[in-house]
């Protein structure tokens, strides 16, 4: 009797849950692309300053042709290109460029990031230009344990 019930249940479940011909097996449409953050970017150009216009054009071109295609792959916040823009605007072209090269060196360093920078809520390492202007008054130090709310 028991055996009959078990066989019956197995048969029913096989019938109920079996794949019908109406649903074909096929390729799942998964995307492994890292979502870009281009909707948060400001692509507008400044009309007041020629230097800023040139730099912003360069950054915009980089964002359109590289960053937006590549996805959100920079581990820092702000990203290196935004860091360059912010640094030049905060200081001057030469100092901002030096700050950018230094940031790029830090970006290439894969070893110390885990315990060196505080994190932004979205997981990026918080590393603003204000820490590197050589003006100690501008440095607002945050320990790595801190989570920054942007």
């Amino acid at each position: 009797m028991n055996r009959t019930i078990i066989i019956l249940l197995l048969l029913i479940s096989t019938q109920v849950f079996s794949q019908t011909d109406w649903v074909k097996w096929g390729k799942a449409n998964y995307s492994y692309a890292v979502p870009g953050n281009n909707n948060q970017r400001d692509y507008s150009l400044s009309e007041n300053d020629v230097g800023d216009l040139l730099l912003k054009s360069f950054a915009d071109a980089y964002w359109v042709f590289f960053s937006d295609v590549d996805g959100d792959n920079c581990s820092f916040s702000p990203t290196c290109s935004s860091f360059l823009l912010m640094s030049v605007r905060r200081t001057n072209f030469i100092q901002g460029t030096l700050m950018f090269f230094d940031r790029f060196t830090r970006d290439m360093d894969i070893y110390k990031k885990y315990d060196h920078y505080p994190r932004v809520e979205d997981g990026h390492y918080y590393d603003p230009p204000s820490l590197y202007t050589l003006d100690t008054k501008e440095i607002k130090y945050l320990p790595p344990s801190e989570v920054v709310n942007k």
């Binding site: 790029f104 820490l131 050589l134």
Partner: peptide, 21 residues
């Protein structure tokens, strides 16, 4: 040259940050 100069600058900035820490 950019990396060389950037590193000189960055080392000074790093020393400041070290002191603040």
């Amino acid at each position: 040259a950019g990396f060389y100069a950037g590193n000189i600058y960055g080392s000074a900035a790093s020393a400041q940050l070290f002191n603040v820490k």
